[in-house]
């Protein structure tokens, strides 16, 4: 290896490491300050950690805020959306990949174009719709519109995977007398299980992290707060001035589940995020 390539390589490494450090630093501070003793948050503010590490902030948060209630709501919300979207996307993607029919192109375009409609445009009409249905401040109200919004992504992604599945196997199954829904459930879905799981994780993470919509629909009643909304309400709660440690402890608790899932399923998550974007 020439000296020049060696130098370029180290240049690349150091710049990328610097970028990684800049990205990670706020997260390190978040964890660090949440572990500082309450009165000593601003002591040595440049250092994310003090010598004494305490879980006192976490105890305070769990004592004063019903975090487990919020956690449960977040679980119901994200699993409701993820499973619902999957149930809708699977048959649609199946039809779009293996059938020829007259309106195929138009309907597919309709599905994909729906992803270009900005969230914020749908907030007001969907809010009005849910108000008519008396679903404001309820979990079904939170979940329902999310089954349509961004559903196109799942259909599109699954279609990409289904299309690369050999058609001969399907035809063989059909000749053996299997109905098309059996082909979907017994052949296509099991064969694409890794793509389906990755999509499920992707929707779970995205839904878990939603904030504006749960705030609009569930923000009026504490029983309907998701974790993100709960943390926001804790943050704006005016009582007690100097409680950054506790606020950041609540943040860490709310962010932890998706980070853990990401660390476990890293490869699949990264692939899904990439595929969804590039192939679009």
């Amino acid at each position: 290896m020439s000296v020049e390539t060696w130098r370029v390589r180290w240049f690349a490494r150091s710049l990328l490491s610097l970028a990684a450090l800049i990205v990670l630093l706020p997260l390190i501070y978040m964890v660090g300050i949440s572990l500082k003793p309450a009165g000593r948050v601003f002591e040595n503010v440049f250092l994310p950690f003090t010598t004494t590490v305490t879980l006192q902030n976490y105890e305070n948060v769990l004592k004063t805020v019903p975090m487990f209630r919020y956690l449960w709501n977040s679980i119901l919300f994200s699993f409701g959306v993820a499973i619902g979207q999957l149930l809708l996307a699977l048959p649609a993607a199946f039809a779009f990949s293996y059938y020829e029919f007259r309106l195929k192109k138009t309907l597919l375009a309709l599905v994909i174009l729906s992803l270009m409609v900005p969230f914020v445009v749908t907030y007001i009409p969907n809010y009005l719709l849910l108000a008519d249905l008396k679903l404001i401040n309820t979990l079904p109200g939170l979940i329902l519109p999310m089954l349509g919004i961004s559903l196109g992504f799942g259909i599109f992604l699954l279609r990409q995977h289904f299309m690369s599945f050999p058609k001969e196997i399907l035809e063989a199954a059909m000749i053996d007398g299997a109905a098309s829904w059996q082909v979907l459930l017994r052949v296509v879905a099991p064969a694409n299980i890794s793509a389906i799981t990755a999509l499920l994780i992707y929707i779970l993470i995205n839904t878990w992290n939603q904030f504006i919509w749960p705030l609009l629909i569930g923000g009026g009643r504490e029983e309907a707060y998701t974790l993100t909304v709960g943390v926001q309400m804790y943050f704006i709660n005016p009582e007690a001035g100097n409680r950054w440690g506790a606020i950041l402890a609540a943040s860490v608790l709310a962010a932890l589940p998706t980070v853990i899932v990401y660390l476990i399923m890293r490869k699949g998550v990264l692939r899904t995020f990439t595929e969804g974007a590039i192939k679009g």
Binding site: A19, A20, L27, M30, N209, Q210, V231, S251, L270
Partner: peptide, 16 residues
């Protein structure tokens, strides 16, 4: 590493 903030709820990490 650089992807980590993408999987975290923004309204939560923005507090730092």
């Amino acid at each position: 590493t650089l992807f980590l903030p993408t999987v975290m709820a923004f309204n939560v990490v923005v507090l730092i």
